[in-house]
Design a protein around this nucleic acid. Sequence first.
RNA 1: GCGGAGGUCGCCCAGCAUGGUCAAAGGCGUAAGACUGAGGCUCUUAUCCCGCAGGGGUUCGUGGGUUCAAAUCCCACCCUCCGCACCA
Length: 960
Amino acid sequence: MSQTKQIEQKWQKRWDEAKLFEADPDPNRQKKLVTFPFPYMNGPLHVGHAFTASRVDVYARFKRMQGFNVLWPWSWHWTGQPLLGASQRVARGDEAYIKVLREVDGVAEEDLAKFVDPFYMAQYYTNNGRSAVKRIGFSVDWRREFTTVMPTFQKFIEWQYKNLKEEGYVTQGTHPVVWCPKDQSPTGDHDRQSGEGITPDEYTLIKYRLDDGTILPAATFRPETVYGITNMWINPDSTYVEADVDGETWIISQQAAEKLKEQEHKITIKRSFLGRELIGKYFTNPITNLKFPILPGWFVNPQTATGVVYSVPAHAPYDYLALRDLQKKPELLTQFGLDPQMVLAIKPISIIKLDGFGEYPAVEIVEKMGITDQNDPKADEATNELYKKEFHSGTLKDNCGIYAGKSIREAKDQLGADFKKIGAADRMYDLSNPVVCRCMTQCIVKILSDQWFLNYSNPKWKELAHQVINQLTLYPESAKPWFHTVIDWLREWACARTTGFGTPLPWGKGWVIETLSDSTLYMAFYTINAQIKANNIQPQALTPEVLDYIFLAKGDKTTAAKTANINPELLDSMRQEFLYWYPLDLRNSAKELVPNHLSFCIFHHAALFPPQHWPKAIGVNGMLMVEGQGMHKSKGNFITLKGAVDTYGADATRCGLLLGAEGMDDPDWRADNLRDLQSKFDSLMGFTSHIITSTKKDENTALERWLTSRMQQRIKDVTAALDDLKTRTALQTALFETWNDLRWYIQRKGNTETNTLTDAVKDWLKLLAPFAPFICEELWSQTNEKDFISTAKWPQYSPDKIDTAAIEQETLITDVMDDTNNILKAMKITPTKIIYYTAAPWKWQIYLKIIEKTLAGEAKINELMREFAADPALKPHMKDIAPMVPRIIKALTKVSNERKLNMAKIGLTDEKTILTEATKFLKDRFNAETTIYSEADTQCFDPKHRAAMAMPYQPAIYIE
RNA sequence: GCGGAGGUCGCCCAGCAUGGUCAAAGGCGUAAGACUGAGGCUCUUAUCCCGCAGGGGUUCGUGGGUUCAAAUCCCACCCUCCGCACCA
């Protein structure tokens, strides 16, 4: 077993034994309740889960180290159809699917055989998931774990829905869904073999009438074109039926009759016949009462809507083409008993004014694109283009009755609704493309009646939800407007369905609360579930009265306790625990959940809890990519959490994920990066161990003060980043930047034997502990510390430990090195001798003066010169000072204000001593004899007269 | 189509709210050197172009604009990714 794995197991076990992450209310400590949306258990946890949850864990560990009482609970989502569907696919012997389970999920044959039981499957993934969560080191309090089908949890959901209903947030209505006639259930995207993303389209049916009163319900997306009708199209070779529809006689395609049966129509088919029977008949437009003929149209698809189509050749390219085709074939018309002259006489009727087009846009576009006939594929393109243009910028002409002058955009809906009101129109839903269910059945649209909805349209509810968003912190803050938009955009949400796992709707027979609707408030359940389990509280004891009391302080304690036969003290204890942990301090999730789960969570908290129990913060992060691509089982790039930890170890996996991205950016999982991180941690192990075990001595040179100052800065930055859930910035600073500081110190120092270094390393481990808890525990245990680093005190930023002079000193060294390197690069030589000349004290005098003036406002050259001239000490140097002053002023514009303040505070710096002390270091670096002089030294080797160029913070350089 | 997030020096990715301290942090990759029996470990240095003295030139999706000054502000355009409902 690898060392990494040994360390992981060791500390996982010790944390467990110490019950380190079990959190109970403690009135003396501030609390943090952090959560991750429970994962759905139809498959193994993957690195995408791990990314989002790692952010929660890092935050939890950080806050725990800061002294907060942190509760991080975890649970499993079993509600819904996919789990059932997955199990059924196994039962059916779906080889492709079973292969994935075997190869991607790594399910053993004996387990696979039992997957025909959906509960077994869910339990299998739950067990695996729990083990993976433990292995990656998430600091979870497992006493509060549940699955969404547990009876106690279901009592909670029943309570939630009972209250929502009482508050008026649950309504009943009808809704069109894509429906599998075989499964007798809605077919969501995940349940589909093909046709992903297809949703029901709503057609308006214009009820044209034959003379005998029979209705020809012609389907259209553009009811406004009723004013431009010239004829009807019926496919002469398709089968139509005459049917009794809710008491009226309709003529529709055979398929349409079947579809309409599912759309709240009562249909009896009276007879069926070929479409050609209708050709040549006349019908009446119910809006204008004008009469038009029925013509043969082979492009009419009986599969689409009613199979009855009306013709608007002025604005519909297909209609114009079909008409033109007919007009070219008089002999064909005669065959149908039609008078060719009559057909030739049909002229398009223009009803839409469209800029850039004349009377007949359809005619123009057909001619412009050179479309030959109705079978030309370009006809589709022309249709799309013209429809779009007319919708966005068309207005109705004078021949459109009361709608004349209106834009299409505004008239469309109004006109459709008006027509329906007077009985001249109806509606029908259909699919734009075929949808096939996983069971291989062709789907249709069904209108579900008596459907239960969460009424997210309710303006009062929306307003409350906006308030919840306004009072909470969002990480990143830029997600806030998005939430507001989503809240405005959400409408009725069907909250129950007839199949799948879940909690039965308390009042609706046969309805089960669907999966996104039972995961909105459950964070509250965590707060009491440890007590429920510890006291073996039975589901029937969780009566509405009991839960009302615990969560809402509604009702009387003794009465509530009595209804449930539960100890009143226990009841109170649960109430207290809820009050202690709530509200939620952080919920973090992937951004894909913003438009649904997270916003629902907001709505439900708004509906049921008072403001003091509304969530305090929500974090959203990007979606994990794998090697630059979305992660999918079908793409073969699916990486399970277990697999990642097996391969790279928990710490590297966590850090690899977190270094990927923050904010709403999508992180990219790259195996190369992971391998590299893995070896980085190996190296960190050796590096740190070495320092910890070195002999120690106390030293306090500027270098130690520099290191201490630097650590303070790092502590400050990491702390601030974590408080803002900027996990990437925090980790980058903690891991790489701090490591670079330590390296610099060791190089400059030449050894690892100071207490200052050890202290810095111990702080470093603490900064890293939230990210890489296992290796940090291990290294921490190698110091003299006895306790876990997981609960060690987070380093406190102390500005008074920062020594700006020490920082400037190291900056001087690096600046000097940069300059030297620059010269060497330009000269392309290897140096044998380097001499640095530091500036004379009088130069410092003017330099500091100029800084002082700059900080005070403006450095005026005249004034400065006058002041300098007045100083007898400077008098002899006036010739040099004159050109120097503007140069210094210019150079200082490149220096930050903060640094100028420091420079002013530090004053004259003995650069000669600083550089002299670093001589050995510089000599080793450049591999050249190195000497330091001050410009003011009476005796110095200066063959090229460089010394005079020396300036404060920029010694002159001579290289041989 | 609607809504959201983005396009930065070979790659990943900081910076952009508060314009100058930005040729632009960090990581990866690459190159050289050190260490080593050896190294795919580790450490050091370099890594837009030009420059025999610490300097100069051209860069931050494209095109304009504001300004003494723009990766950063404004306008237009192009491209990529994500969500869009009964489904987790």
